[in-house]
Nucleic acid binder design. Structure first.
Lengths: 150, 150
DNA sequence: TAGGACCCTGGAGTGCACTCCAAGCAAGCG
DNA sequence: CGCTTGCTTGGAGTGCACTCCAGGGTCCTA
């Protein structure tokens, strides 16, 4: 059986406490699960769809992730919560694999993403305002009911 | 045939320009499509799953939306882009239908949502920082390449 | 009164991002 | 040696939020 999200990950912050120094950075998949909060299924799936570079393997064929892979996963995690579709992230991964001559394209892609993020933040702040109006309404209504009961 | 998103909705802002005054507020579904940017399919689906109150009907059974319905859809739109699951919005809609005695629950739900939104904004700002670091890196790399070529 | 645009329904289909399964290999331990 | 735990694979399954379809009724204008 495969353990998926066993230990209580009470707070899903980036807890990369015990990263090993470069040179000894050969993490098993379950270690990466602990670092990233992703499931092993998802990590393997990311690799299949080309969102990860080909991961190094042990002599018996098991995955061994490097610090570089962890960095990449951290970026992917950030991009993911901007709502960027996985397909776009794969596109970016392809650009990275294709080499230095894609710097321009990557730059454009990141700038476009940046604009998206700014727009989303603005939307959320707008929503926050609506929410606060409603919250105030219900707070007042609650006080009114309380005084009515007294 | 059903027209879904025919006219060029170049900018999906809340363009509620020509709302009719209360009393004559009986909009067809396609008018609501124009207001909200949702498809007619989605509007009917929202009703089916209980995310909308039962919409008034014309004498032949066609939907006639009111200003109140439009207001509700505007709130739903906001909540939707916070990432709130539709099921939670349905829960809120149920509370509204149940009457005034659910004010407390609604208050709690909105407060929890508010916290979520704040957290998401923080995440996005964090992501923005990462993005900006990368963008600067690629900008520098671009300049380096340019000077190399000259 | 004919034509075209609009609207109705229940149920089936789609796309995305995972998520899980079965069957099997491998490593460490008593 | 057997047991448990962890890792491997390709492919199938899941849940969400729509999205569409067939087959039919309605509204408006010429």
């Amino acid at each position: 059986m495969e353990t998926t999200a066993t230990t209580t990950d009470s707070c899903a912050g980036p807890v990369h406490a015990d990263r090993r120094p470069d040179g000894q950075d050969r993490y098993t998949i379950s270690e990466v699960v602990a670092f990233t909060g992703l499931t092993a299924h998802t990590l393997r799936w990311y690799e299949r769809i080309g969102l990860m570079p080909h991961i190094d393997r042990s002599h018996t064929g098991q995955r061994r992730y490097s610090n570089r892979d962890l960095d990449w996963l951290e970026l992917v995690g950030k991009l993911r919560l901007t709502g960027m579709p996985v397909a776009d992230m794969v596109r970016y991964a392809e650009l990275v694999r294709e080499g230095d001559h894609t710097y321009g394209d990557r730059f454009e892609l990141l700038k476009a993403t940046r604009e998206d993020v700014l727009a989303r933040i603005a939307e959320l702040q707008d929503t926050l305002a609506v929410l606060d109006r409603k919250i105030n309404f219900y707070a007042d209504a609650g006080r009114a009911l309380a005084s009515e009961r007294s």
